[in-house]
Design a protein around this nucleic acid. Sequence first.
DNA 1: GGCAATAAGTTCAGTGTCTAAACAAATCGA
DNA 2: TCGATTTGTTTAGACACTGAACTTATTGCC
Lengths: 403, 403
Amino acid sequence: MTVPGTPAGQQTVRRHNLSLITTALAGAPASRAELAHRTGLTKATVSSLVDVLISQTILVEGVPDAPRVGRPARPVRLNPDGPVAVGLEINVDYLAACALDLTGQVRGYRHAPVDNRGRTADQVVAHAVRLSDEVRAGLDQPLLGVALALPGVVGVDGELLRAPNLPLLAGARLGQALAGELNVRELQVDNEANLGALARLWSAPDGGRDFVYVSGEIGVGAGLVVNGELFRGVNGFAGELGHVVVERDGPLCGCGGRGCVEQYAGQEVLLRNAEQPDVEALEAAVTRSDPRALAAVELAGSALGVGLSSLLNVVDLPAIVLGGVYARLYRVIEPALTAELASRVLSSRSSAGRLCCSSLGVDAAVRGAAGAVVDRALKDPGRFTEWDASSDSSSPSRARRTG
Amino acid sequence: MTVPGTPAGQQTVRRHNLSLITTALAGAPASRAELAHRTGLTKATVSSLVDVLISQTILVEGVPDAPRVGRPARPVRLNPDGPVAVGLEINVDYLAACALDLTGQVRGYRHAPVDNRGRTADQVVAHAVRLSDEVRAGLDQPLLGVALALPGVVGVDGELLRAPNLPLLAGARLGQALAGELNVRELQVDNEANLGALARLWSAPDGGRDFVYVSGEIGVGAGLVVNGELFRGVNGFAGELGHVVVERDGPLCGCGGRGCVEQYAGQEVLLRNAEQPDVEALEAAVTRSDPRALAAVELAGSALGVGLSSLLNVVDLPAIVLGGVYARLYRVIEPALTAELASRVLSSRSSAGRLCCSSLGVDAAVRGAAGAVVDRALKDPGRFTEWDASSDSSSPSRARRTG
DNA sequence: GGCAATAAGTTCAGTGTCTAAACAAATCGA
DNA sequence: TCGATTTGTTTAGACACTGAACTTATTGCC
């Protein structure tokens, strides 16, 4: 909570304890007395903090439930009618948007299949803004914030640095453009693997706070979740599983190296090896036990296993969650993968490295984006002490672009 | 500073701000007024905090330097005669100990060449305790704490989980045994790669706060330093560079996998390939351009480059520091290594991935261990509010083992 | 030598936040 | 209707920070 190198005062304490309340309420509602018990604060302090959060529309009082002996508890919970977070995703062949309230409920969702390969940044941004509006239509709730998921390598400043399949958008400052259009101060931008990982983190409360999420989209990315937080690395390049080496002298990769995971398990290579036009066809071929398809998937699984072994020996995480294509091919890909992992990962002996498959579909990244906004708000609700006064970004009717 | 999930109060603020003072003084002494300027606190607060730290013997007032106009500043600095930290290292063929004062100055050092392969845990612990005493001999300063460096995989609880060359010590709870003998409450245990990395962090102030330190001892380990902090992973297994895959079907490794970095660049393999008995001989052979030796080192460099490329694509760090054997062979190993890195590491285009060589020798890990103790103290001096009262561990004369 | 200028460090009233304990409120059970 | 029980609020006190006034110590200039 406290920012290193910055002096702490009473306000710092307040901020920390406000965050204690909101995170304690993220799971289930609770009375003030129970909050005091959970957080270790006194009842008096909890009352004071809850008052602040209610006045900020972050919390609301619920109806007392089945009364027992003693004064009935008045449960307090995250306000489903408080500010909403919007997640956006710009991908190769679709755009998506998602509105989430503070409780994590989806309040709006749009998935627009569209080929973005030939579109300019301006066009894509305009479309994304439209989706953002649609997704908030009918919700008379202020905008908490917006986050954006992109397919490719995203720098720390939100720039799209590498996007092999969206060349027109490479180098575009999509985050800043969208922030201007949507009239939000800051807009978090991250790649789909990272945000997919976060979606998994919050959608599976018992799924652990440490895992690798493998995003099997066009590239092979991984989101590293360590102690419930994303590990991004210094430039935001962390988790580039696609360019971990499987064979030093393997096939040449677009990155300039040789034998990268992507050259065995990337979607493009996978389809080519299987001689199938798209993922749907591959899935069908696999279910009818097409030998070429099976071989291609097995090769991919084995290479992915080698790459993940290297990754796990470097970052030491106890679980792997497969997303994207790999989730859809889980059944077929799993044996080769586990075989490699079992023989290669050091920690596989002491801690059973669980492998599982994401239950979220294509909407993982958008959900994660919106969730990231909510998460930030719940982890530091004190940020909004000035925020609620200047509610210029509160109404869905924003300043439209001129022309 | 603040512990997540724990209520914050005024004491929390104090603790944070005390740490602000000590870390601000880690570089150079400063007057109270300058500290106020550096930290952002008021002069009044700084005075109060400094008083506390002086009473705890963490800080001392120095002599006023060349006076200028105005009341002369009274510089405050870390107390070189305050508590001392002890670092210990148990390695395959030596034991080492190091005493560091709060300013980071070495106040005592011992390096005892001894073959530990045949010794039991009890024997090694007893020897280490003796060295710890020797290193503090003549220093009438309380003991700040002790940390221990081990060659192998160290679990989060300090257990030595894998130590291929010290089979008698595998599974031993050396940290707990030493803590009991030395009468310290807790004793930080970590592997030599991690502590070597920390030593590098503090010995090269301009060396950056993000890098991989490659420890070329018996195994090939890596210490990952991210934003000035060690990245240990969930079980403490992070950074096992030796078992990153170079060739999926390469030679069988002791870990059960195939084609691990260790099978090309490990010290044992390296010596075997070069047909040399030990590292000294190898160094000599290399300087007289022995073709076998050069080939072996080049092979190692190339394999290390492949492994490090995978590592950097996973954790995204901007610099590599070579330690151990690799530092000694830097000249010869560097070309092959940089070639692999340049073609394979994604971020090598945007951020120049600097490769350099540690200036510390075999004492890197002990220094790092002692430094880790000092670092912890400076980052949270508030921990010692109760500590100084019960000064049972303050005198060098401790309770000896009975018998 | 005396005195303004300058800068360092201290003192003190004021404010915000937490704690602990007493108090008020609301319900059950007899 | 009354005691038991639990929730939530009030209040006095403690603690740490801030800002401003104040004290201290030195330089530089007349």
